[in-house]
Design a protein around this nucleic acid. Structure first.
Length: 280
DNA sequence: CGGCAAACCTGCGAGC
DNA sequence: TGCTCGCAGGTTTGCC
């Protein structure tokens, strides 16, 4: 479900509701999701105060005052739900972990169980196995047009596939890859090694702008995604191409009766959407 | 090493 | 109404 903008939005929700609160108890309801859940989470974390909430790619990191860090990935269908501690706290279907804080609790819910929760106390968080190989953060200075250009140039893979490669740029998923390529006017099937510097600069800017706009809109709610308070994101209303096969391109003035409109192809097993007139 | 399909799961909508 | 099929926002593995 969640790509960088959704994870960023969830992180802000956690921060707003739970920062500086003491974690009182952790209830774990199944032994494993994608990986085994950390043993003794309750023993390790109870009594610690939530210091900071950060995001790295599609991972959230919850930093506690005695040095523990909870690493969360939402997979395809993961949700974080924050609610008042005064309401009933029985786990609902697919609630796998509930973190009980002073005044509120945080549920980790994930029907498909592709998500990850881990706990570490290693201060070299960047060396953690889940985080160490991730490429630059697209909204930070380390993501440069020049470095992006050189990374794309190295590969014969299609640009769409390269945007999903977390080594090249962090946090871009299937929706925003299509949207960014549309914004840059580049065909999803174009080979990385055939991109020009000017095109790479355009795509670099398009990735950043697309992600930033989506964060501003609170992410995109299709099926599973909700913000931590249950409210929906609304960037899905701004999609130009994603999920719009057969519909008119919103920026083309041509007659939909005379064209096929937005087209859908499958690349590396994932759907890509594009306008054949605007993307070359 | 590069590139792709399959695997991990459940839910939902489309079509019959 | 109810069944089957295909597909879904991610990542890893294993096979050519």
């Amino acid at each position: 479900m969640p790509e960088l903008p959704e994870v960023e939005t969830v992180g802000m929700g956690i921060r707003d509701a739970l920062i500086h609160q003491k974690l009182k108890r952790v209830d774990v309801y199944r032994p494993a999701i994608r990986f085994p859940l950390p043993p003794n989470m309750d023993d390790v974390l109870s009594g610690q105060i939530l210091h900071a909430v950060k995001r790295r790619s599609k991972y959230l990191t919850l930093h506690f005052d005695k040095g523990s860090v909870v690493i969360i990935h939402l997979g395809m269908s993961g949700q974080i739900i924050i609610e008042s501690g005064n309401t009933p706290d029985a786990p609902e279907k697919h609630d796998h972990v509930i973190f009980h804080f002073d005044t509120h609790r945080m549920r980790y819910r994930d029907p498909r169980r592709f998500g990850v929760i881990d706990v570490t106390s290693d201060p070299a968080l960047g060396e953690h196995r889940l985080l160490k190989d991730i490429g630059p953060e697209p909204l930070e200075d380390g993501f440069t047009a020049d470095g992006f250009y050189r990374a794309l140039k190295k590969s014969q893979s299609p640009l769409k596939t390269l945007l999903l490669d977390q080594h090249i740029v962090a946090g871009v998923g299937n929706i925003y890859a299509s949207e960014a390529l549309y914004r840059a006017g580049l065909h999803p099937s174009k080979s990385g090694n055939r991109i020009t510097k000017a095109q790479a600069v355009r795509l670099h800017g398009a990735v950043r702008a697309t992600l930033q706009d989506a964060i501003t809109a609170g992410g995109s709610s299709l099926r599973d995604y909700v913000q931590t308070d249950g409210s929906l994101g609304y960037f899905q209303h701004h999609f130009k191409v994603y999920g719009r096969a057969g519909l008119a391109c919103p920026d083309c003035t041509c007659d939909i009766e005379k064209t096929k409109g937005i087209e859908k192809i499958v690349q590396s097993g994932r759907s890509s959407f594009y306008c054949p007139r605007r993307q070359k």
